[in-house]
Design a protein around this nucleic acid. Structure first.
Length: 548
RNA sequence: GCGCCACUAGCUCAGUUGGAUAGAGCAUCAGCCUUCUAAGCUGAGGGUCACAGGUUCGAGUCCUGUGUGGCGCGCCA
């Protein structure tokens, strides 16, 4: 964020006065208060101790040695306890606008992650039901994180861990079968105790009745397999349909089944055995986690012969490592927190660098309306599915609302606010800024007004204009920070600020009707804002309409 | 009992690696549309940053303890 020339001059001075590791100590920030200038550094305060000098004195030593291009720096001052504040000239910002404008659609992209492979796994809901709100938050977070890394030049794989093995699928089959029998008049047919109670099970059963009649009436193994497969396809179809409404698509659906069929599970067991990390007790196979510093040993293969989740999870993540990913991101709900240490310990024991695994935990979603928690959908009378929420408030609103809070905090989803198609709704505020800009360009075109690319921007001098440029300059940095912290919310907040700065600019400065060179300079200001809003919203998965 | 997450304005939340006078939105009140979209802009009120210690030039931010709330602690995933 800090211009290179500024950073360079300071670094040179710090070197000259014999500071050790100045790169680490030199940091710039943008002061909250305008009166302190455009950039500030507290480096003098940090150095004061090691130099055993008064901070203001240190600041003076530094400032006296600084050399700048006078066209770019307006003022350097020492304030407060020893902050060095720098005010840059309007020419500097005009040049910056020019630079951002010339970068065009690529402004904000970087090559930082070039050659690096990142895997982002998200959603990964089992095909036993419909997506609920928590899945929705998971999906939006994962997708936006993937988008952020793509912007940084990483080779991104969006992955869904597809678990269609194990007891849950039997459960699904038996649940559908029970409803099927009941529909066919066998009213007393018992519903499985731990079956899936949702109404969608009845829907599936009804579909089977409509299509095949009583063809699958017998409680045979083949028929169970049929219901399992039918239910899986039905659920997974719905899941993909819902995700697609949110513009979420995965590159890889990694099937848990393949871990078994390709012998990956056995490989892991053998590897752990060779490291003497597993043993047998009570007919089950245990993972000796206490040897790895954890609290308790855990079962990885039940006495029935089925593995617990830990084993396939370790095998799956081992595969991710073997597939050559430099960074492995898992997006999980906070209810999975307890499962991660075991899996990481297993991977560590297998010799993998677990610092490459980043698990993003998100907290729960609570649907609120007028201060009261909403548990059931008014329309269906059942608990809200993600799909219902989307059809009620729209995909853009759902995506933005799920992303506008930081990942680690509980999310209160304000249904009344989300429904509101007005200025109160932050999504519309952002989209409106974009539509307004488009409208300016449309109007200019209609009236035959053209602007010139090579006109100078050095005529912009109002506070509002400079303010807008300052925010535009931050875009690349914001993308980077959002990705590093795995927090799309940082980008959402930034876009909101940018929209505000634009609305203020729009209010204070006219574009159409201004004389050259102001006309063209302001056009550029609007163009750069438009690109950032569009690209930024795109990363968040929110559309940027040309008209509203 | 143990682990993780949170606690900031009436409500929902921001607050960069510790920095200067803690910020938005909603809600409340008061203004601004013959000119590019008023889904906008401007202003006002509203705070013991849960509490108590500690670290230091400086703490909403770091450390310790306490309280409140959420989630988890299975041969479920």
């Amino acid at each position: 964020m800090c211009p290179d020339f500024l950073y360079g001059s300071f670094l040179k001075v710090l070197h000259n006065i014999g500071v050790e590791n100045p790169e680490i100590k030199l940091r710039f920030e943008q002061p909250k208060n305008e009166q302190f200038g455009d950039f500030a550094t507290s480096v003098a305060l940090i150095l004061a101790k090691e130099l055993k000098l008064n901070p203001r004195q240190v600041a003076k030593e530094i400032v006296d040695r600084l050399q700048f291009d006078q066209n770019l720096v307006e003022k350097v001052s020492i304030d407060g306890p020893g902050f060095i504040n720098i005010k840059l000239t309007n020419l500097f910002f005009a040049t910056e606008l020019e630079r951002m404008f010339k970068e065009g659609e690529y402004y904000g992209r970087s090559t930082k992650g070039k050659g690096k492979k990142v895997n982002v796994e998200y959603v990964s809901a089992n095909p036993t039901g419909l997506l609920h709100l928590g899945h929705g938050r998971n999906a939006c977070i994962g997708d936006s994180i993937a988008n952020l890394f793509a912007w940084l030049g990483y080779d991104v794989t969006r992955e869904y861990y597809f678990n269609n093995a194990g007891r849950q699928m039997h459960n699904l089959a038996r649940s559908i079968f029970a409803r099927y029998r009941q529909l066919l008049g066998d009213d007393d047919y018992p519903f499985p105790e731990d079956g899936y109670h949702g109404d969608y099970i009845k829907e599936i059963a009804k579909e089977v009745v409509d299509k095949f009649g009583a063809h699958y009436f017998d409680e045979s193994e083949e028929n169970m397999d049929f219901f399992k497969k039918y239910g899986e396809n039905w659920c997974f179809g719905k899941i993909r349909e819902t995700l697609s409404k949110l513009k979420i698509h995965h590159d890889v659906f990694y099937n848990e089944d393949s871990l078994y069929s390709e012998g990956k599970i056995d490989e892991v067991v053998n590897l752990l055995r060779s490291k003497e990390l597993i043993y047998e007790k009570d007919g089950a196979i245990w993972f000796a986690l206490t040897k790895l510093g954890l609290q308790e040993d855990r079962v990885i293969i039940k006495s029935t012969g089925e593995p617990t989740y830990r084993l396939p999870d370790i095998a799956y993540h081992r595969e991710k490592f073997l597939r050559g990913f430099d960074l492995i991101v898992d997006v999980l709900g906070s209810d999975h927190i307890a499962t991660v240490p075991d899996v990481l310990a297993g991977l560590g024991a297998l010799g993998f660098d677990t610092s490459r695994v980043k698990v993003v935990f998100h907290q729960f979603v609570t649907l609120m309306e007028n201060g009261v928690q909403v548990k059931m959908s008014k329309r269906s009378g059942r608990s809200y599915t993600l799909d219902e929420l989307i059809s009620e408030v729209g995909a853009d609103v759902v995506r933005f609302f799920f992303l506008m809070r930081s990942v680690s905090t509980h999310l209160d989803f304000d249904l009344a606010l989300a429904r509101e198609q007005s200025e109160k709704n932050p999504v519309f505020y952002l989209q409106y800024a974009h539509a307004r800009i488009c409208s300016i360009f449309d109007t200019a075109k209609e009236r035959g007004i053209e602007f010139v690319d090579n006109a100078s921007t050095n005529c912009l001098n109002s506070l509002t204009e400079i303010q807008l440029i300052k925010l535009q300059r931050r875009f690349p940095e914001v993308i980077e920070i959002s990705a590093e912290k795995f927090e799309p919310q940082i980008l959402a907040d930034y876009l909101y600020d940018l929209a505000t700065a634009f609305h203020v600019f729009y209010h204070n400065c006219r574009i159409i009707g201004s004389e050259e060179p102001i006309l063209s300079a302001r056009f550029k200001l609007a163009r750069v804002t438009q690109r950032i809003l569009r690209n930024g919203l795109n990363i968040l998965g929110v559309s940027a309409p040309n008209r509203m």
